[in-house]
Write a protein that binds this DNA or RNA. Structure first.
Lengths: 143, 143
DNA sequence: AGGTAGTAGTTGATTTTGTAACCAACAACC
DNA sequence: GGTTGTTGGTTACAAAATCAACTACTACCT
């Protein structure tokens, strides 16, 4: 009946990665949530526009591997709060180009600094070598 | 205005880990969802009972770092489908010990095999050395 | 031009999660 | 023995994710 089982759940990648992802998101989440009332997809959209500049919703969705309904709702909320501006395309009237307002840009810069701090804090116990290794391996896995 | 920005979102750990976690969960998710109609927390509870045997909801929650309401609902659904049995504690009548039924055990064993395949498939492009490294680094990060 | 198919983005219905309040049982204290 | 505080677990309600259907537009094809 209760024979021992040697499957190591803690090392099963989908489990392990989820734990690490949730754990690592906490600190940053507290900031973007309390400081700007944002959700996960919202800071991601904000960052995409902050980093890459003017983009359409579809482009963001592709780059972030996020479903378009999620993007659509995030854009809606960010637009309501004046973090971004919607700019209809002249040639193709289905398309909207999105770009940050000064408010949005300021929020992005603020959160970018926080993100950098969080990231540094997360790897505080790893050597620079190990940190690089970890990121490279994760990129190969997620890419 | 649109000066280039050099923050690398793809390497920001909360982002990178989330992408890797979601990506890596897809294959396994398809199986436990389609084959047993389970949700994420449900397979986790199933695995905990399969691996460690008889446990209480609270113990599972602590080990899996999962909130008790999530566990409670997962247990409820697993019990309805006869994957597990609830066994009230004699001494403390608040406590319920949980254990898998034969059906639950069979499902666990089936999914465990799938999990092992998924895991192997995920690291198919990494050397055994790199795989070990990755897991160790993640454990240090998540632990 | 008219018809078909495909794309950008939104909306609505259903499911799932998160937060807080809750109940029942225990424990400790005086 | 009653009060207070804590713990195991559930429930209720709000917030959010999911999935499908939808509108509006473009592109292609005849």
């Amino acid at each position: 009946m209760s024979e021992k089982d040697d499957f190591d759940l803690q090392l099963f990648l989908p489990y392990l990665l989820n734990q690490a992802a949730e754990e690592s998101s906490l600190a940053f989440q507290r900031v973007y949530k309390s400081r700007y009332g944002m959700l996960r997809t919202e800071w991601r959209v904000l960052f995409h526009l902050g980093i890459y500049g003017r983009m359409t919703a579809t482009e963001i969705g592709q780059r972030a591997r996020t479903h378009k309904t999620k993007i659509s709702r995030a854009v809606q909320r960010l637009a309501e709060r004046r973090f971004l501006r919607r700019d209809p395309d002249e040639r193709d009237r289905r398309v909207e180009h999105l770009e940050l307002t000064p408010t949005g840009l300021a929020a992005y810069r603020d959160l970018r600094a926080v993100a950098q701090e969080c990231d540094a804090w997360l790897v505080r116990d790893l050597s620079p070598d190990e940190t690089g290794q970890l990121r490279r391996l994760l990129v190969r896995l997620a890419g």
